[in-house]
């Protein structure tokens, strides 16, 4: 029992991924508990959900055990915060705006915002590129494919 490897993650960290899965299984089980189960020969809609939820919990417990007992814990991947934030923002902006202001402005903003997920993005390049991409999108979605989405808010 030597403390040779100090950068080994703590037990709580090691159990994190399995723990989240266990939580998912438990939430699912608690929701499915009120569904009618029926009998094996005449299964109700709640039968399979309950089985699946219990299976998820069992697998999650097994994963937690394996991760805690593993001699050298595998570290999780690096977080790409910049990508996560700007890509999410772009999709949310598109989703919120498309019903309100139409396809063209929301496409423009989605492209522009998403480009900042790359840490080398410069405002002028973004402006030019987003305009070009919006023009391409207008040609593809509204002119060529004739999708029934209004271009601008009316």
């Amino acid at each position: 029992m030597q403390e040779t490897d100090q950068d080994q993650p703590s037990i709580a960290r090691r159990a994190l991924s399995g723990g989240v899965l266990l939580a998912v299984g438990l939430v699912m089980l608690s929701i499915a508990w009120s569904y009618p189960v029926g009998k094996l020969t005449q299964m109700g809609p709640g039968f399979i959900p309950r089985v699946v939820a219990i299976l998820i919990c069992a697998l999650a417990l097994a994963i937690i055990l394996i991760d805690i007992r593993a001699p050298s814990a595998e570290r999780e991947g690096r977080m790409h915060w910049r990508g996560l934030i700007f890509v999410s923002a772009a999709v949310v902006i598109f989703g919120v705006l498309v019903d309100v202001v139409g396809l063209i402005p929301s496409m423009f903003l989605a492209v522009a915002v998403s480009m900042f997920a790359d840490d080398h993005a410069k405002p002028l390049t973004v402006l030019i590129y987003a305009s070009l991409a919006t023009l391409g999108g207008w040609l593809l979605f509204l002119v060529a494919l004739e999708l029934p989405i209004p271009a601008f808010w009316r």
Partner: peptide, 12 residues
């Protein structure tokens, strides 16, 4: 950025 827009428009 183009793929993101295609995903958004495609899903919507």
């Amino acid at each position: 950025p183009v793929i993101i827009v295609m995903i958004c428009v495609g899903v919507y």
